[in-house]
Amino acid sequence: MVAEVEALSGPLRVGTGVSVSGVRKAYGDVVALDGVDLRVAAGELVAVVGPSGCGKSTLLSLVCGLEPADAGTVEAPAAALMPQRDGLLPWLSALDNAALALRVAGASKAAAREAAHAHFVRFGLEGFEKARPATLSGGMRQRVAFLRTLLAGRPLLCLDEPFGALDALTRTQAQTWLAEALAREPRTVLLVTHDVEEAVLLADRVVLLSQRPGRVVSVLDVPLARPRARTEQAVVELRERALAALGVAE
Protein backbone atom coordinates (compact mmCIF):
# COMPACT_ATOMS: atom_id res chain seq x y z
CA MET A 1 0.00 0.00 0.00
CA VAL A 2 2.88 2.33 0.79
CA ALA A 3 4.42 1.71 -2.62
CA GLU A 4 1.08 2.49 -4.23
CA VAL A 5 0.81 5.78 -2.35
CA GLU A 6 4.33 6.78 -3.32
CA ALA A 7 3.54 6.04 -6.94
CA LEU A 8 0.55 8.37 -6.66
CA SER A 9 2.64 11.26 -5.44
CA GLY A 10 5.61 10.49 -7.68
CA PRO A 11 7.29 13.13 -9.83
CA LEU A 12 6.54 14.23 -13.39
CA ARG A 13 2.92 13.27 -13.65
CA VAL A 14 2.15 16.19 -15.89
CA GLY A 15 -0.32 14.45 -18.20
CA THR A 16 -1.81 15.95 -21.31
CA GLY A 17 -2.50 19.63 -20.76
CA VAL A 18 -5.73 21.62 -20.89
CA SER A 19 -7.74 22.79 -23.86
CA VAL A 20 -10.71 25.13 -23.44
CA SER A 21 -12.47 26.36 -26.59
CA GLY A 22 -15.33 28.79 -27.02
CA VAL A 23 -16.63 28.15 -23.53
CA ARG A 24 -19.70 29.94 -22.29
CA LYS A 25 -21.25 29.64 -18.85
CA ALA A 26 -24.21 31.55 -17.45
CA TYR A 27 -26.04 31.40 -14.13
CA GLY A 28 -29.55 32.55 -14.91
CA ASP A 29 -29.17 35.95 -16.55
CA VAL A 30 -25.61 36.43 -15.35
CA VAL A 31 -23.10 35.41 -18.02
CA ALA A 32 -19.92 34.43 -16.19
CA LEU A 33 -17.82 33.38 -19.18
CA ASP A 34 -18.40 34.06 -22.86
CA GLY A 35 -16.30 32.57 -25.64
CA VAL A 36 -13.23 31.78 -23.58
CA ASP A 37 -10.31 29.98 -25.25
CA LEU A 38 -7.42 28.72 -23.20
CA ARG A 39 -4.54 26.30 -23.72
CA VAL A 40 -2.26 24.97 -21.03
CA ALA A 41 0.52 22.70 -22.30
CA ALA A 42 1.57 19.73 -20.19
CA GLY A 43 3.93 20.89 -17.46
CA GLU A 44 3.13 24.54 -18.05
CA LEU A 45 1.97 27.02 -15.40
CA VAL A 46 -0.66 29.36 -16.76
CA ALA A 47 -2.03 32.17 -14.64
CA VAL A 48 -5.49 33.59 -15.27
CA VAL A 49 -5.83 37.17 -14.11
CA GLY A 50 -8.89 39.35 -14.13
CA PRO A 51 -11.00 41.69 -12.06
CA SER A 52 -13.28 40.36 -9.32
CA GLY A 53 -16.35 38.59 -10.64
CA CYS A 54 -14.93 37.96 -14.12
CA GLY A 55 -15.64 34.24 -13.91
CA LYS A 56 -12.15 33.05 -12.95
CA SER A 57 -13.43 30.59 -10.35
CA THR A 58 -16.11 29.41 -12.78
CA LEU A 59 -13.37 28.62 -15.29
CA LEU A 60 -11.66 26.41 -12.70
CA SER A 61 -14.94 24.67 -11.84
CA LEU A 62 -15.36 23.80 -15.52
CA VAL A 63 -11.77 22.55 -15.87
CA CYS A 64 -12.12 20.46 -12.70
CA GLY A 65 -15.35 18.98 -14.06
CA LEU A 66 -17.44 20.34 -11.17
CA GLU A 67 -20.03 21.75 -13.57
CA PRO A 68 -20.66 21.52 -17.31
CA ALA A 69 -20.18 24.38 -19.76
CA ASP A 70 -23.27 25.77 -21.52
CA ALA A 71 -21.38 25.88 -24.81
CA GLY A 72 -17.90 25.07 -26.08
CA THR A 73 -15.58 22.26 -25.05
CA VAL A 74 -13.33 21.64 -22.06
CA GLU A 75 -10.64 18.97 -22.28
CA ALA A 76 -8.54 18.45 -19.18
CA PRO A 77 -6.83 15.60 -17.36
CA ALA A 78 -7.85 14.67 -13.84
CA ALA A 79 -7.41 17.74 -11.65
CA ALA A 80 -7.00 18.52 -7.98
CA LEU A 81 -8.47 21.79 -6.76
CA MET A 82 -7.11 24.19 -4.16
CA PRO A 83 -9.92 26.58 -3.27
CA GLN A 84 -9.64 30.22 -2.30
CA ARG A 85 -10.30 29.66 1.38
CA ASP A 86 -8.28 26.56 2.15
CA GLY A 87 -11.26 24.21 2.55
CA LEU A 88 -9.40 22.29 5.25
CA LEU A 89 -11.54 20.05 7.43
CA PRO A 90 -11.52 21.57 10.93
CA TRP A 91 -11.83 18.22 12.71
CA LEU A 92 -8.76 16.71 11.06
CA SER A 93 -5.14 17.33 12.06
CA ALA A 94 -2.80 19.06 9.62
CA LEU A 95 -1.37 15.65 8.71
CA ASP A 96 -4.76 14.06 8.08
CA ASN A 97 -5.87 17.09 6.05
CA ALA A 98 -2.79 16.81 3.86
CA ALA A 99 -3.42 13.07 3.49
CA LEU A 100 -7.12 13.46 2.67
CA ALA A 101 -6.80 12.89 -1.08
CA LEU A 102 -4.84 9.70 -0.46
CA ARG A 103 -7.50 8.47 1.96
CA VAL A 104 -10.18 9.22 -0.61
CA ALA A 105 -8.13 7.29 -3.18
CA GLY A 106 -8.34 4.26 -0.90
CA ALA A 107 -5.06 4.34 1.04
CA SER A 108 -5.13 3.16 4.65
CA LYS A 109 -4.89 5.81 7.34
CA ALA A 110 -1.34 4.79 8.27
CA ALA A 111 -0.07 4.69 4.67
CA ALA A 112 -1.68 8.04 3.82
CA ARG A 113 -0.17 9.66 6.92
CA GLU A 114 3.25 8.26 6.14
CA ALA A 115 3.16 9.56 2.57
CA ALA A 116 1.97 13.00 3.68
CA HIS A 117 4.47 13.22 6.48
CA ALA A 118 7.35 12.74 4.04
CA HIS A 119 6.59 16.27 2.76
CA PHE A 120 6.11 18.01 6.11
CA VAL A 121 9.71 19.06 6.63
CA ARG A 122 10.07 20.63 3.19
CA PHE A 123 6.87 22.59 3.64
CA GLY A 124 7.97 23.86 7.04
CA LEU A 125 5.17 21.99 8.77
CA GLU A 126 7.24 19.68 10.96
CA GLY A 127 6.04 19.68 14.54
CA PHE A 128 2.51 20.71 13.47
CA GLU A 129 1.35 17.25 12.33
CA LYS A 130 -1.29 16.98 15.03
CA ALA A 131 -2.37 20.65 15.01
CA ARG A 132 -5.92 21.40 13.95
CA PRO A 133 -6.32 23.99 11.15
CA ALA A 134 -7.81 26.56 13.55
CA THR A 135 -4.54 26.68 15.46
CA LEU A 136 -2.36 27.17 12.36
CA SER A 137 -1.37 30.50 10.81
CA GLY A 138 -2.87 31.49 7.47
CA GLY A 139 0.37 30.72 5.66
CA MET A 140 0.61 27.25 7.21
CA ARG A 141 -3.00 26.49 6.37
CA GLN A 142 -2.30 27.28 2.72
CA ARG A 143 0.75 25.03 2.78
CA VAL A 144 -1.33 22.15 4.18
CA ALA A 145 -4.00 22.84 1.55
CA PHE A 146 -1.41 22.89 -1.23
CA LEU A 147 0.16 19.68 0.05
CA ARG A 148 -3.28 18.04 0.02
CA THR A 149 -3.69 19.21 -3.59
CA LEU A 150 -0.25 17.96 -4.59
CA LEU A 151 -0.73 14.57 -2.92
CA ALA A 152 -3.90 13.97 -4.89
CA GLY A 153 -1.45 12.72 -7.53
CA ARG A 154 -3.34 14.43 -10.34
CA PRO A 155 -1.47 15.71 -13.39
CA LEU A 156 -3.31 19.04 -13.23
CA LEU A 157 -3.48 21.42 -10.27
CA CYS A 158 -6.17 24.09 -10.27
CA LEU A 159 -5.28 26.81 -7.77
CA ASP A 160 -8.11 29.26 -7.10
CA GLU A 161 -6.62 32.47 -5.67
CA PRO A 162 -4.60 30.33 -3.28
CA PHE A 163 -2.99 33.29 -1.52
CA GLY A 164 -5.80 35.83 -1.80
CA ALA A 165 -6.56 35.78 1.91
CA LEU A 166 -2.95 36.15 3.09
CA ASP A 167 -1.24 39.34 4.21
CA ALA A 168 1.40 40.79 1.86
CA LEU A 169 4.43 39.39 3.70
CA THR A 170 3.00 35.87 4.05
CA ARG A 171 1.90 35.95 0.42
CA THR A 172 5.44 36.73 -0.72
CA GLN A 173 6.72 33.73 1.23
CA ALA A 174 3.91 31.58 -0.12
CA GLN A 175 4.81 32.45 -3.71
CA THR A 176 8.38 31.39 -3.00
CA TRP A 177 7.49 27.98 -1.58
CA LEU A 178 4.94 27.37 -4.32
CA ALA A 179 7.62 27.99 -7.00
CA GLU A 180 10.05 25.71 -5.14
CA ALA A 181 7.49 22.95 -4.68
CA LEU A 182 6.57 22.98 -8.36
CA ALA A 183 10.24 22.90 -9.32
CA ARG A 184 10.56 19.71 -7.24
CA GLU A 185 7.31 18.13 -8.36
CA PRO A 186 6.35 19.46 -11.77
CA ARG A 187 2.68 19.54 -12.65
CA THR A 188 0.46 21.26 -15.14
CA VAL A 189 -0.90 24.22 -13.21
CA LEU A 190 -3.79 26.55 -13.81
CA LEU A 191 -3.48 29.42 -11.33
CA VAL A 192 -6.30 31.91 -10.89
CA THR A 193 -5.37 35.17 -9.22
CA HIS A 194 -6.30 38.83 -9.14
CA ASP A 195 -2.68 39.74 -8.43
CA VAL A 196 -0.87 40.61 -11.68
CA GLU A 197 2.53 40.56 -10.00
CA GLU A 198 1.91 37.09 -8.58
CA ALA A 199 0.98 35.89 -12.07
CA VAL A 200 4.15 37.31 -13.64
CA LEU A 201 6.35 35.91 -10.86
CA LEU A 202 5.00 32.37 -11.10
CA ALA A 203 3.59 31.71 -14.57
CA ASP A 204 4.93 30.67 -17.96
CA ARG A 205 2.03 32.53 -19.53
CA VAL A 206 -0.49 35.01 -18.20
CA VAL A 207 -4.04 35.03 -19.56
CA LEU A 208 -5.92 38.27 -18.95
CA LEU A 209 -9.71 38.15 -18.62
CA SER A 210 -12.10 41.08 -19.05
CA GLN A 211 -14.87 42.23 -16.74
CA ARG A 212 -17.94 39.99 -16.66
CA PRO A 213 -18.78 38.32 -18.94
CA GLY A 214 -15.19 37.07 -18.88
CA ARG A 215 -13.38 37.02 -22.21
CA VAL A 216 -9.69 36.60 -22.94
CA VAL A 217 -8.31 40.10 -23.50
CA SER A 218 -4.70 39.20 -24.03
CA VAL A 219 -2.11 36.48 -23.40
CA LEU A 220 1.39 37.40 -22.21
CA ASP A 221 4.36 35.06 -22.43
CA VAL A 222 6.72 35.23 -19.48
CA PRO A 223 10.01 33.89 -20.89
CA LEU A 224 12.01 34.62 -17.75
CA ALA A 225 14.30 32.33 -15.79
CA ARG A 226 13.31 31.21 -12.30
CA PRO A 227 13.51 32.15 -9.52
CA ARG A 228 12.20 35.59 -10.37
CA ALA A 229 12.32 38.66 -8.18
CA ARG A 230 9.56 41.25 -8.15
CA THR A 231 12.16 43.97 -8.54
CA GLU A 232 13.58 42.57 -11.82
CA GLN A 233 13.19 45.00 -14.67
CA ALA A 234 11.56 42.40 -16.95
CA VAL A 235 9.08 41.42 -14.23
CA VAL A 236 8.14 45.04 -13.62
CA GLU A 237 7.69 45.67 -17.35
CA LEU A 238 5.47 42.61 -17.84
CA ARG A 239 3.40 43.61 -14.84
CA GLU A 240 2.84 47.08 -16.31
CA ARG A 241 1.96 45.60 -19.71
CA ALA A 242 -0.57 43.30 -18.07
CA LEU A 243 -2.11 46.14 -16.08
CA ALA A 244 -2.32 48.26 -19.22
CA ALA A 245 -4.03 45.41 -21.09
CA LEU A 246 -6.56 45.15 -18.27
CA GLY A 247 -7.21 48.87 -18.63
CA VAL A 248 -5.64 49.77 -15.32
CA ALA A 249 -3.28 52.73 -15.67
CA GLU A 250 -0.62 53.00 -13.03
Partner: peptide, 17 residues
Protein backbone atom coordinates in the same frame (compact mmCIF):
# COMPACT_ATOMS: atom_id res chain seq x y z
CA UNK B 1 -18.05 24.30 3.97
CA UNK B 2 -18.59 24.92 0.23
CA UNK B 3 -14.83 25.04 -0.41
CA UNK B 4 -14.29 21.65 1.22
CA UNK B 5 -17.17 20.32 -0.88
CA UNK B 6 -15.52 21.63 -4.06
CA UNK B 7 -12.22 19.98 -3.10
CA UNK B 8 -13.85 16.60 -2.50
CA UNK B 9 -16.03 16.83 -5.60
CA UNK B 10 -12.98 17.61 -7.73
CA UNK B 11 -11.30 14.49 -6.30
CA UNK B 12 -14.16 12.44 -7.70
CA UNK B 13 -15.36 11.16 -4.33
CA UNK B 14 -18.29 8.77 -4.11
CA UNK B 15 -21.51 9.77 -2.35
CA UNK B 16 -20.55 7.54 0.57
CA UNK B 17 -17.09 9.16 0.84
Amino acid sequence: DPDARRVLNALGTSRWQ
